[in-house]
Write a protein that binds this DNA or RNA. Structure first.
Lengths: 196, 196, 196, 196
DNA sequence: TATGAATGAGGTTTCATTCAT
DNA sequence: GATGAATGAAACCTCATTCAT
């Protein structure tokens, strides 16, 4: 299994650094090889082609990202608190790895449609996780019935994603994690004035 | 003024078609020129370089997009209905121009950081418009006070943008406009069960 | 006769200025037209093509250059003094028109072989003039008999040309004309120590 | 060291042939690559850009040219004979490599000012060599004291260069080397009749 | 396994020249 | 005569990928 050989991770980590520091279009295979400390040709012993590096990068990093969120959420009962934890984890993980944040929020989006489709496939389990939280919330009677779940998921994901992207583009100058509770509240209760 | 000569718009419209049909990276200047029915060199009488075509495209199209929304919203009193109208207009305009939807949601995002920065500048008035609606809602007492307005805007824009992108990626197979009311309700009232 | 219409000279003078200030390869037809205060297309009413501007420029300017030298030399009797006058005129004329010096010594040499051939044709009368001075000197018994006249001419022209080129490349910081007598003496008597 | 790998010289030799046969402006990189028997991209493993090929060409070829002259001159005592040898070597070397003669005398002069400046830098040691011969001649008492050495060098170089250029332009139809003694005599003794 | 020299396809832009007005 | 908008050919260089060692 190629994925378990040390150079596999070595190359992926090099790719994250190179892309974060040079930008997507300035991240040539040779640059990634150099950063990884291997020859250009070696890359092709571990990856089919350049796109495969990026897809693998996303798979590895987002796989861990999602796994960690799933772990943390599992023991929580309330769907509402699950959602809060998801938001906090989403923000904290990207806050802790600035390189990865730049790569996922800004650089990889410059890829072509085909690659973005594959990236979306990797994200699928995350969206499914959101769906299941919403479903639980409905079952628990704390979320409105008759919700269009795809739409909910788009609202949650779109909001979180936009927030992280803005934070990255502002060069991470403010505390992203600190906004988790506020946005959780907004997603649950909306803009409207709440009485009492 | 070059912007008022007919070939300016002719080339921009050609660019939208070519980019939507061939993808960003397969949209060579020669292809755009051919579609516009002009010589390659003519492009450079109207645009500084290729990037300038894309920036101008976004300026023209999003300028109109935003203007139309502003016009429609102005006579409306209630901030809540203003937001609804904004959502409807956002969806309907992109629904009516599939090529443009593809270009703005998928293709132009593949551009480099520099171009994306310019694109963001064009979007600014739209974000300001959202801010002003939120502020009015607060002043009218129908939106919660103490809202973090930047955050609200990110929620609204992130949600709408994610919805349109998903719709485009699903090849526009469902009715986007039909979801305007639902998402408006969600943004206003959130996920939580509403009694009564 | 096109050569006598005012715009003919106007365009040539514009070309000298533009080429001297921008360099040969940065002297587009449109730039020359602008400097001349005419439309691009007008150029082609007076010149067959771009090369024709340059050949005509050389013809006009070098024609005058040679004519003036011929005039000054005619009344002089001694071949040696004729040569001195030729050198002085060569240097003084180019010293007095810095733009022209730059154009003839540096810029026009960047032209292709074909154009340079035509330029050489224009120079022919100048070389013939040198030949005749040498012949007179021989006839007068002051120049060595049996001189290879082509070779002499190459020595004289090569020397003067190299001196002017060096002077132009040193940005005309020293007095070129002041070297006329010295080089005249050198051409006549060579490097060797002269006794008595 | 790239300069020592065989392809470096291979490409330079190809450039000489291509430029001599097609002219400076018709010598595309692809043509040079084809002549060298390498891929276009390979050129850029050895040279920064096209100009770098030309500068390197001149450095290699003129470097050897000058070195050989220096070697031959070193053992000679008399400054006068040194100058004769320099002239002979100058002529013989260019006579022996017609392609190179065409390239240095005609084609490379079409380059832009920047490249010509670099070419001049390469020529500097040759001019210094001439200066030192003149100085020796003065020290040996066989050349006139008080000579303006820059001017002498311009006379020598200008004369030789003009002679070679004329010979190349006459398509090398006569024996250049055979004129070495005559021009040497002229440089030393000038045009004036020598008695006795 | 690992290397890295070699490959070669592909696109933006300039600018001399034309020609309808 | 004069204009200037339109034309379209042409080339340098990059970089993902291969393959002999």
């Amino acid at each position: 299994m190629k994925k378990n050989r040390p150079k596999f991770k070595q190359i992926i980590d090099a790719a994250v650094v190179v892309i974060a520091e040079n930008g997507y279009h300035q991240s040539q295979v040779s640059k990634i090889a150099k950063q990884a400390g291997v020859a250009d040709g070696t890359i092709y012993l571990y990856f089919k082609n350049k796109e495969d590096i990026l897809v693998s990068l996303f798979q590895e990093k987002m796989g861990q990202f999602i796994e960690k969120i799933e772990e943390e959420i599992k023991p929580i009962e309330s769907a509402s608190l699950k959602l809060l934890k998801l938001i906090e984890m989403h923000f904290s993980q990207l806050s802790q790895d600035h390189h990865l944040a730049i790569v996922t929020q800004l650089e990889l989006r410059q890829s072509n449609k085909e690659l973005r489709q594959k990236i979306n496939d990797v994200l699928k389990p995350y969206l499914v996780l959101m769906d299941s939280i919403v479903q639980e919330g409905i079952d628990q009677g704390i979320f409105e019935q008759n919700l269009n779940k795809r739409l909910i998921r788009q609202m949650i994901f779109g909001t979180l994603d936009e927030m992280v992207t803005n934070w990255v583009m502002k060069e991470q100058k403010y505390n992203l994690l600190g906004q988790a509770e506020v946005i959780h509240d907004l997603l649950l209760n909306g803009l409207t004035t709440r009485k009492g």
